[in-house]
Amino acid sequence: MSALSANTDGLRRRRAVNRLMEAIATAAAFAAVVVLGIMVVSVARRGGAAIDLNLFTKTPHPFSFTNQPSGLANAFVGTAVIVGIATAMAVPVGVLSAIYLNEFARARVAFLIALALDVLNGVPAIVVGIFVFALIVVHHGQSALAGSFALSILMIPLIARATQEVLALVPQATREGSLALGVSRWRTTLGVVLPQTIGAIVTGTTLAVARVAGETAPLLFTSSIVGDRLQWNPHLALASVPLKIFEYSESPDPADHARAWAAALVLISFVLVASITARALAARSRRRMGLHR
């Protein structure tokens, strides 16, 4: 009995430590959620107060102290053009590399390519911007195309890895079923294997778009010297939403801040909705794949 009670003191202390640690972990998780909440609420409140239709239909008025309607139509158009072209560049490269990685490459080669993609994914966006500056801008000047190329470099590893992960889940039996018919490898890959990964490609692309739509760093050196006119031509440097937010955030003028918040609200809504949708899609297609695995 005495041994047991002697132990009780130790146990009480151990329990207390346990409770403390559990409380810390719980608090940490809630702190992260609270920070997200504060950020979203700040953006929603301040952006919501400043947002109006002019934001999408008017270009910036050169003198913000006048009461002329002013907006960021040029930045929205520019972001759409730049991200659209970047997606068009990155999807084929990403998907095709994933096919090579999963369907053709030997184990060792696949290992190296996957490693290279992961490392590429870790290259800082600002360095990618400097790279495209050195490769293109130094010779041809800034353009939306240069910005798109920079963004596509960030997208390729995301799309490739997302596609490859799902290609790896396609059962070998499906490939064998097609090959046993005397169907060649390329038709098997494109006709039977790839259609099963469309969902994953869409998800991966959506996540990649959500990520780069808010990227500022790669555009600083590639598509930043812009006027306030509405432009569509990708051979010119085009304005973009994140860069406008960046500029306005460093401005001393509260009117600029208001526009930055409004643009941030649009951007964050797009990004969060896209990420959540993509996640939901991914979960659904993974469940469907699991069904006939």
Binding site: A29, A32, V33, V35, L36, I38, M39, S42, V43, R46, A210, R211, A213, G214, E215, T216, A217, P242, L243, I245, F246, S249, E250, H257, A260, W261, A264, L267, I268, V271, L272, S275, I276, R279
Partner: peptide, 22 residues
């Protein structure tokens, strides 16, 4: 888990804007 990962999806320029002004 999803909310924590959503934090990663917030564009850095928005985090920065919030960082300066809030």
């Amino acid at each position: 888990g999803t909310l924590v990962e959503m934090l990663a999806a917030v564009p850095s320029v928005v985090v920065g804007l919030w960082g300066i002004l809030v």
